[in-house]
Design a protein around this nucleic acid. Structure first.
Lengths: 364, 364
DNA sequence: TTGTACGCGTTATCAT
DNA sequence: ATGATAACGCGTACAA
């Protein structure tokens, strides 16, 4: 009637008894081809069928206790889930999928009162035999990450830009996506492309490096490029999404107020999706339409879907970054030699243009 | 030099040897007050200090193997992380925090090719001894959830509205937040409040039930209420955030086109944040300002921070829903009697108004 | 106040 | 081709 009665889990022993084989034999047979080859056809079949019939599942803890591996990958988030999930979730998706694919499960680690996630990660490595740790190197200091360089654990970093560390790192390559964006706008017929990014020299990552790629792409296609800049957020400002959006809005409002309407950009390439959202607002407020009057390309692929119209973006490919990181991390855990080989390794994930509804032909 | 050499983990036995006590004694002493009371002051001190000095950490798998508990709570997501994280992340934050607080860790479960998350959850219960399962009852059919009602595992559901099941459920109560929203607008001086929701009769949850609360709150304050409706999305439409936003925009555009400008709403209470974002767009396109001309209150607290200006919302309090669910689930796992007691239980989490920048006094 | 001895379910080694 | 047996590290009932 009720299934609630705690039915004891079925063990190797149960199968052994029912089939008249020994525990060891059953164990080996159920491990499959490498080890099961030495046994008689009949025995293999009998054991497997019995395991099936009884619904046998190996006990995870017993196995881990014995092997010292836990088939678990840890993910050390620098901040709380709530405040980071907006961009972190995408990467987490990739991480989870790949982990599952390789038969591993995921342990989410976030900072506690007195300890950061890296410390907790190491803790877990010791008491739970976590096999490897993925560290999204966004909000960590290089200092604190450096302490992970010599621990007895497979650590792989994920970032959006180069950071100083000998740990293997998976990071985004902004070039392909930006080049595609420029090409896309050119194909649509735009002749003057406007870069919307931080004042040069104020932000190496979001600014200078990406703008350089943009400029060279524009030049190589023989197009005109110009730029609108926003000032970096005041130092120490809370890293609130809303602040970024607001910053983008103000900069764009100011720019649009300063030029005659027929001189407004026909298309924008933004260094950051959040600023792009602010620009959306500013553009509408000035009586211009998106994409009719101004086409917009953002950078990232987080909020793009809620933009109205949904935004064409250069995607960071966060899921792919996460996926690759897990692949590397597990490989390292399985093969210690790799740990040495991958020292200082950089794995670049090409960014990619995702075309949506914010980009069209310019008005004639 | 290199710390890389796999230093064998320290075990109870190591402490036992170093202190000259038996393993059992060390074990009991390290468990603390309940069991350690019977031992001599001196012994306790010696053992504890030694454990400290050697950096002892109990082996998680050995412990779980012995106790049959894994100190792990599973979370069974109905869809992929990437596609759900936008609203699910908030709840996940609450889940993680509470789990950690109670010494548990989190196992994220998402659907696989041939099995949904609930099946995988049960699988984990069997082979990994996960103690309990949190099921965000959003995209699951009542059918498939019903199959969880008689399994030997602590299951707690989380939803935003009542669903038919005997499983204990944590859900949102929309009333408090909506009442606060109405009061807030009234306090600001608004006299006519406009509801922006789905056509009556087309959506029990987002529509009728919330609108009823709104209407009664408006009436009880002696204010005027009216409404603008959007049609439900066509059945089978992809549950894309962008579609919702677009739907909101079109409905609001249509409404604004149909009324003289001085009859436009001075404030909006939206049944859904995504539609509210669409309304944002429509309002700007019509040359009106937010919040100057139109104050807007959304529902949810997911995208509100990226709205420009950031949106005042009735928050679902998703982190709190997650937190409470974990609290209940772990309690049930610890005390089987609770499983019976909480049959059919409903735990309501009051929604709450979060005031931001999209609501101000109406123009004089 | 402390110790002995066994069991948890699996894997690995070494026999046969 | 198969089986005994000893780990893995911890918890606990029972003895001393």
């Amino acid at each position: 009637m009720t299934r609630k009665r705690a039915t004891k889990a079925v063990r190797l022993k149960d199968i052994a008894v029912k089939t008249g084989m020994s525990i060891a034999t059953v164990c080996k047979i159920l491990k499959g081809p490498p080890t099961s080859d030495l046994f008689a056809e009949g025995s293999v079949k009998r054991v497997k069928q019995m395991a099936d019939r009884l619904g046998y599942r190996p006990n995870y803890h017993a196995r881990s206790l014995q092997t010292g591996k836990s088939m678990t990958v840890g993910v050390a988030m620098a901040g709380s889930i709530e405040s980071n999930i907006w961009f972190f979730g995408q990467m987490l998706g990739g991480i989870q999928n790949q982990a599952r694919l390789l038969g591993h499960s995921l342990l989410l680690i976030s900072p506690e009162k007195d300890r950061d996630s890296l410390a907790t990660g190491l803790e877990y490595a010791r008491c739970r035999q976590i096999d490897c740790l993925i560290v999204p190197h966004f909000a960590y200091s290089e200092e604190s990450v450096r302490q992970m360089e010599n621990v007895n654990l497979s650590v792989v970093l994920t970032t959006l830009y180069e950071r100083k560390t000998s740990l293997p790192t998976v990071l985004m390559d902004p070039k392909p996506g930006i080049a595609q964006a420029v090409q896309h706008l050119a194909d649509l017929g735009h002749r003057r492309l406007t870069w919307f990014g931080p004042v040069p020299g104020t932000d190496q990552i979001l600014g200078d490096s990406r703008e350089a790629v943009f400029s060279s792409a524009v030049k190589s296609l023989g197009l005109k490029g110009d730029s609108v800049y926003f000032s970096k957020l005041p130092a120490g400002a809370p890293d609130e999404v809303g602040e970024w959006v607001q910053g983008g809005r103000e900069a764009m409002l100011k720019h649009l107020a300063g030029v005659p309407k027929d001189q407004a950009p026909t298309c924008l390439v933004c260094s950051d999706e959040r600023h792009a959202l602010g620009a959306y607002s500013a553009i509408l407020e000035c009586g211009l339409k998106i994409p009719g009057d101004v086409s917009v390309v953002g950078f990232d692929n987080i909020f793009a879907p809620v933009a109205c119209p949904t935004m064409t973006v250069v995607s960071h490919m966060l899921p792919e970054i996460g996926r690759k990181a897990v692949e590397m991390a597990i490989a390292m855990a399985d093969d210690p030699a790799l740990v040495v080989k991958l020292r200082g390794h950089r794995e670049y994930i090409p960014s990619q243009l995702i075309v949506s509804k914010s980009t069209v032909r310019p008005r004639a």
